[in-house]
C-alpha cells in the first residue's frame, strides 16, 4: 500500500537526517529517488529549490512535495507524518530528560558549555545566509568585496537597525525588506 510505503520511507529519512533539514536531502536522493524511483533526478533538483524557496522546515517541504506527487494530499500527509514521527519520539524523550535533570550538577555543566557552542551554530548559519545575500557566495573563499550587492547590503543594514532600535516584529521586518528589495530590482 502506497501510503504505508511513503510513511515508512519518510520515517527512515527523518530518523537518519542528523543536523537539520538539509541533511535530509541526500537521504531523499538515495531512498526516494534512487531506490524507489518516486522522483526523476530533475524533479529532485526542482524539489531542492522549492524546499528552499518556500517557508517552513525544509524536511517537511520535501516530504510534502514527494507525497503530493505520488498520492495527492493524503500522500503528502503520510510523508509529513513519517518524517516527523522520529523527531517527536526522540525530542520528547530528550525534553523529559532535560526537564528532570537540568538542575543536576553534570547536566548544569554540560548545558553551560553547550550554550556558547549553540550561539556559534546560529551565528554560522547567519554568516552563510549573509554571504549568499551580499555576495552571492557559497563560502567566504568566493567573497570579493567589489562584488557586493548594494541593494541587499542596504536592506541588511536597515533591517538590522530596525530590529535593534525599534519594536517592529521580525516577521514584519522580513516582509518589508523583501517587498522593498523586490520593488527596487524591478524598477531600477
Amino acid at each position: 500500500m502506497i501510503y504505508l510505503e511513503l510513511y515508512g520511507i519518510f520515517f527512515l529519512i527523518g530518523l537518519f537526517s542528523f543536523g537539520g533539514g538539509y541533511a535530509a536531502m541526500p537521504w531523499i536522493l538515495s531512498l526516494a529517488v534512487e531506490q524507489k524511483g518516486w522522483l526523476t533526478l530533475s524533479e529532485y533538483a526542482d524539489l531542492t529549490s522549492i524546499a528552499e524557496m518556500t517557508p517552513g522546515p525544509i524536511g517537511v517541504n520535501a516530504a510534502t512535495f514527494v507525497g503530493q506527487k505520488m498520492a495527492g494530499l493524503p500522500g503528502a500527509l503520510f510523508c509529513t507524518l513519517g518524517c516527523i514521527t522520529p523527531s517527536l519520539i526522540i525530542v520528547l524523550l530528550l525534553a523529559l530528560l532535560y526537564q528532570r535533570y537540568r538542575d543536576l550538577g553534570v547536566m548544569k555543566n554540560v548545558l553551560f558549555r553547550l550554550r556558547p557552542a549553540v550561539v556559534s551554530l546560529i551565528a554560522s548559519a547567519g554568516v552563510t545566509i549573509l554571504l549568499l545575500a551580499l555576495f552571492n557566495a557559497a563560502s567566504y573563499k568566493e567573497v570579493s568585496l567589489t562584488a557586493v550587492r548594494p541593494v541587499e547590503a542596504c536592506l541588511f543594514l536597515v533591517s538590522l537597525l530596525l530590529l535593534r532600535k525599534t519594536k517592529i516584529s521580525p516577521i514584519a521586518v522580513l516582509l518589508l525588506s523583501a517587498a522593498a528589495g523586490t520593488l527596487l530590482y524591478l524598477f531600477l
Binding site: 546560529i122 545566509i129 545575500a133 541593494v151 536592506l155 538590522l160 523586490t182 530590482y185
Partner: peptide, 19 residues
C-alpha cells in the same frame, strides 16, 4: 528576486539574535 532579497532580511534577523 524575492528569494534573493529575502536573504538580506533573514540574515538581519539572525544577526540581531546572535548579537
Amino acid at each position: 528576486i524575492v528569494l534573493q532579497v529575502m536573504r538580506a532580511g533573514v540574515a538581519a534577523v539572525i544577526a540581531d539574535v546572535v548579537i
